[in-house]
């Protein structure tokens, strides 16, 4: 049993997005975080103080641990942002801003 089977899901056609240039498949309606979990990825950010890895923690947009860069926009909450075809997702370091 997996969650899709449990809910008898018949998702729309999967599409491709990239994580740091690597192609991964995502399902319509998923958040960025859900797509990354489905691809087996559980961390996509390192902290600005100690460079420690982080991913989903609260899952509902409260904790901001899952911040990620999507289409050059840093510090997006992966657990809230719906994934769209062609999204360029990048792991982010530090503040997420370049300089």
């Amino acid at each position: 049993m997996n969650p899709l089977e449990l809910a008898r899901a018949q998702p729309g056609p999967a599409f491709t997005v990239t994580l740091d240039g690597r192609e991964i498949e995502a399902l319509p309606g998923q958040t960025i975080a859900a797509a990354l979990w489905a691809a087996g990825v559980t961390s996509w950010r390192t902290t600005r103080g100690e460079g420690r890895p982080r991913g989903v923690f609260c899952g509902i947009g409260v904790c901001f641990d899952c911040l990620v860069t999507v289409n050059d926009r840093p510090n997006q909450r992966a657990c809230l942002l719906p994934v769209q075809p062609g999204d360029a997702i990048r792991t982010q370091e530090g503040t997420g801003h370049e300089d």
Partner: peptide
């Protein structure tokens, strides 16, 4: 508790209900 893989109970549930995914 900051290690990836540690999630809130409600977060695991939200990801399951909304995205039909599990963390591990």
């Amino acid at each position: 508790w900051t290690l990836p893989g540690v999630v809130t109970a409600g977060g695991a549930q939200a990801m399951l209900k909304g995205g039909l995914v599990v963390p591990g």
